[in-house]
Design a protein around this nucleic acid. Structure first.
Lengths: 169, 169
DNA sequence: GTGCAACCGTTGTACCTGCAACCACTCTAG
DNA sequence: CTAGAGTGGTTGCAGGTACAACGGTTGCAC
């Protein structure tokens, strides 16, 4: 019956797990982002935005839905879409059913940009995610992370659209 | 022997895995950060900074080492330390061996702040990381993430200091 | 149909971060 | 001792994000 000291509590496995999530994410994304920027001249946020649109019916998504999927605030998404529109990869379209709403729609140029970025990006992910983990580890990690995402109150609900893979099984 | 189309490649499990890393990280950290801010009035970056210091010998770390551990650039860490110093949780100290270098040292106030933040933070992590995964899932996740971090060219090398748990085994 | 709360998306503002340039210091070669 | 390259840390600057406040629209209660 030892009283936990601050020191001992700092070694808690929960703290470790959380810290690991931060570190692994920072390590992987910073490298992958750098490589994507080098090979495709496009930040990772753009890529994630474009791929969500490309996977959606009619290559379009409501702003709010998109914000949820890429994990940005509404205002953050507005600015991001502004920049991507400026590049010609996306265009805004009014929503006929709800005059408040707006769609972000993938343009042909956007589709082409995504396509040409894809190979390098896949290679990059291979290097920094697949190779270290192995195919089996990758599958387990994906599963665990999906559980986390779906358990979180934030973001897109598990049922909505296809937020990066609608769960296998 | 089907040629992979852009569409089919977008469904690639590697893309999914990477997207899941982004989503899970965003979902978990945003909630945990919000909660920590509410209960301890301290952003997650401060907490991570303080806990690294508290785990280090003499509660001090060189700026570069610290930058590596919290996954920030040198300039980013300089500013962060500036802010935390302003709050009185840390102080700078000259390095006697190398007059270029500087230490960040945890102050008693910093230790106290860390201590009082710890309980709420642990609870928060419990809710959003441990409960959804279960103890076994948590262990597996930690292991996989550690593998990722250590494989990455970025950040602290596995051997350095104790970057959130010096690997068991 | 009128009022009111809730919602969608944008804008003003402040904060945080990285990159590049910089200064101070150390180390090595000659 | 000195020159020059390399390292540790800080500063100027630009870019990206969140929070709060706003205008426009919808849906519900009455």
């Amino acid at each position: 019956m030892v009283v936990p000291t601050a020191r001992s509590r700092c070694e808690d496995e929960r703290i470790t797990a959380f810290g690991m999530l931060l570190e692994a994410h920072a390590a992987v994304t910073s490298v992958v982002n750098r490589e994507l920027e080098a090979t495709a001249g496009m930040p990772i946020t753009w890529f994630e935005l474009l791929i969500r649109l490309s996977r959606s019916p009619e290559q379009r998504l409501r702003m709010s839905e998109l914000a949820g999927q890429v994990g940005l605030s509404h205002s953050g998404l507005t600015r991001l879409v502004d920049r991507v529109i400026e590049a010609g990869f996306v265009q805004r379209e009014a929503c006929p059913d709800d005059r408040r709403g707006a769609f972000a729609v993938l343009t042909p140029a956007g589709g082409a940009a995504l396509d040409s970025a894809l190979d390098g990006h896949l290679e990059s992910i291979d290097r920094h995610l697949v190779t270290p983990l192995g195919p089996e580890g990758l599958a387990r990690l994906t599963d665990l992370l999906r559980t986390l995402r779906d358990a979180s109150p934030t973001g897109a609900s598990p049922s909505s659209a296809c937020p990066t893979g609608p769960s296998p099984a």
